[in-house]
Design a binder for these strands. Sequence first.
DNA 1: ATGGCTTCATAGTGAAGA
Length: 254
Amino acid sequence: MKIASWNVNSLNVRLPHVQDWLRTQQPDALCLQELKLEDAKFPLAAIEDAGYHAIFDGQKTYNGVAILSRSRPEDISKGIPGFVDDQKRVIAATENGLRIICIYVPNGERVGSDKYQYKLRWFDALTNYMQQQIADYGDVALLGDYNVAPEDRDVHDPQAWEGQILCSEPERAAMKRLFKLGLKDSFRLFEQPPKSFTWWDYRMNGFKRNLGLRIDHILLTESTATRCDSAAIDLEPRKLERPSDHAPVTAILR
DNA sequence: ATGGCTTCATAGTGAAGA
């Protein structure tokens, strides 16, 4: 079973890339973030034509998440129960017995800002939600744009980024609290090339110079991690014309 | 250089992303 996550930065703009990627990569489930469209404008027919089911929770202009899947999604849930939030950032479903949770963590803008406080509060709510989801389902995969580079090796220039948004100690502590629930970073279960990243700024030729961060992750519960054969970042879509600023990340489960 | 690029929005000294 191949599972994947991709922040597409507008599904409207990126639909051709998503269609190509589904055709060439054939994931069993693909989590999408930053749809940037209302549910009424979700391209359901195009996704179904590609052979996939789709569940989604979108809004105008910002945010929005979806799960595309080969199998019919079961036990669908949107948002974090008990956490009131206008921003559409979480959707979950069970696929072939695996609980798949798709997240778009707030960016946080700048350390100390209101949006930063919201990001940390949001992480707390996610952690409580995940504790319950793991207890309820056991086999769980948490995929998405976490907007956190967990370690210095996930940053092209750790000194320049030290203490900055996406790298600050409270954000990394929030990631560690997820790991303490037993979740494993699938990418780090395997040997990986140095300077592996999932996001590059559109400006300054960031991708060509590999000035990136690894902020998109697939976390797996221990029972699921033991079934994981490989994990990777697919750089190819980032090389296309008019790309998303994020690359897709994948994990293969037995 | 609180800049650089891209998206969605509106016609802003634009907002937000990361």
